[in-house]
């Protein structure tokens, strides 16, 4: 049994990760703006609040792993995006992952594992989501760099990159689009498997990367995208 901290632990993928960790006999600490009453411990905080983040992670005691899922999205094209919206997306998605690693490091055991949340959005472009695409590219850069920094302690750092996942986050992002219903209707066909992922399927990949089965896997990105990247 291990103890794992999950940022965004009250969201769709985060909640599924908390549930799966605990179903497999582990303890999950949720770090999120919202509480997750299912989690062994739930800390409600903003990842940009460093003292609160540090305190919540210190309180968790010894961690076997950290999962950085917390993320946000804001529509906007380069020519029209408000600076504040751009900064919020970059701060939460990339900066929040960096800060969570920074403050988890003192309590993360040697030989543990970190999983960051990438996305197929790091590899493709769509119009009107420039901050989100950029932030996910940054997360992958962070993952590759941090995998080297943590290697001396035997801590592995990897990313999971989903395509479309059927969550509240996706529903909210689609609601911001004028043609959101049509985009959702086409989303399944964008994957070889012909459907969106369920959050639990992404959680399974996260648990694999956290586990001893992945003990020689570090510095890499695992696509959980139903073949989205190969479908054009």
């Amino acid at each position: 049994m291990g103890t794992y901290a999950v940022t965004g632990g009250a969201g769709g993928i985060g909640g599924a990760t908390v549930r799966l960790l605990q179903a497999r006999g582990h303890r999950a600490v949720s770090l999120d703006l919202d509480a997750n009453p299912e989690a062994w411990r739930t800390a409600t905080l903003d990842l940009m609040d460093e003292p609160a983040l540090a305190a919540a992670l210190a309180e968790a005691g010894s961690l076997d792993g950290l999962v950085c899922i917390a993320g946000t999205h804001a529509m906007g094209r380069v020519t029209a995006m408000a600076w504040e919206n751009w900064r919020r997306v970059l701060q939460v998605n990339a900066g929040g992952s960096m800060l969570a690693m920074k403050h988890a490091a003192p309590v993360l055991r040697d030989g543990g594992a970190i999983v960051l949340m990438g996305s197929v959005s790091a590899h493709i472009g769509t119009d009107g989501s420039v901050a989100y695409h950029t932030s996910k590219g940054a997360v992958l850069g962070l993952m590759r760099a941090a995998s080297g920094e943590f290697a001396a302690r035997g801590i592995r750092v990897n990313a999971v990159s989903p395509g479309w996942v059927d969550t509240g986050f996706t529903t909210r992002a689609l609601a911001a689009l004028p043609d959101g219903a049509a985009v959702r209707a086409r989303a399944g066909a964008a994957h070889i498997l012909g459907r969106m992922a369920q959050a639990a399927e992404v959680a399974e990949a996260i648990l694999f990367l956290l586990s001893d089965d992945a003990r020689f896997v570090t510095g890499t990105e695992l696509f959980v995208d139903g073949g989205f990247m190969r479908q054009r």
């Binding site: 995998s147 080297g148 290697a151 592995r156 989903p162 070889i192 498997l193 992922a197 369920q198 399927e201 992404v202 990949a205 992945a214 020689f216 896997v217 570090t218 510095g219 890499t220 695992l222 696509f223 959980v224 995208d225 139903g226 073949g227 990247m229 190969r230 479908q231």
Partner: peptide
């Protein structure tokens, strides 16, 4: 949900 991809097991 994993297909059409590559899992790298190379120790970084």
């Amino acid at each position: 949900f994993i297909t059409g991809t590559t899992l790298v097991v190379d120790g970084g």
